[in-house]
């Protein structure tokens, strides 16, 4: 590599600075964050389970109860986002509130609320899936690939 001495010096300086910054940077409180994620994520799942058991007790099949439960949880995620509570939960719980399906609802409703001022088409419509979009794209891609794999395996 034909790097001249000046560039090498610059790189060395930047590396040294990077070490300094890493030394000074406060570490996130990992244990505390994990505990919050565990408790909040767990509680969200418990609420989901209670809803599902309730639908089963009403006489729905297990599969229908699961669908109804997911739908209810999405509604609750959206509702608590609208009430301005979900972001406070997310600030504490991190992945604990992002990973459950309620977090997905939050990721769609939050930009929809935020960009309402830019109108319904170029605001809400265009921005609503700005965060959830990649999840949907790669989720659909993965499901198609798995479906194809299953199809191929059937004919083997």
């Amino acid at each position: 590599m034909g790097k001249n001495p000046e560039e090498l010096l610059k790189t060395a300086e930047q590396e040294e600075y990077h070490h300094l910054v890493n030394r000074m940077k406060p570490k996130p409180p990992l244990a505390q964050n994990c505990m919050w994620a565990f408790v909040v994520g767990g509680l969200i799942c418990v609420v989901g389970q209670i809803i599902m058991e309730y639908f089963i007790s009403l006489g729905y099949s297990r599969q229908d109860a699961v669908s109804l439960e997911s739908t209810s949880m999405i509604f609750l995620g959206a509702l608590f986002t609208g009430l301005g509570i979900y972001d406070n939960l997310g600030a504490k719980a991190g992945a604990g509130s992002v990973v459950p399906i309620t977090g997905f609802a939050n990721a769609i409703v939050a930009p929809a609320m935020e960009f309402k001022r830019e109108g319904y088409i170029f605001g809400v419509g265009a921005k609503m899936f700005s965060i959830a979009g990649p999840t949907l794209l790669f989720g659909f891609t993965a499901s198609v690939l798995i479906g194809l794999a299953k199809l191929i395996m059937l004919y083997l």
């Binding site: 940077k25 406060p26 996130p28 600030a91 719980a93 509130s97 939050a110 935020e114």
Partner: peptide, 13 residues
Amino acid sequence: RAPVEQGVQRVPS
């Protein structure tokens, strides 16, 4: 950064 109502965790820095 992110929409205000989105639940994201901030880092200490």
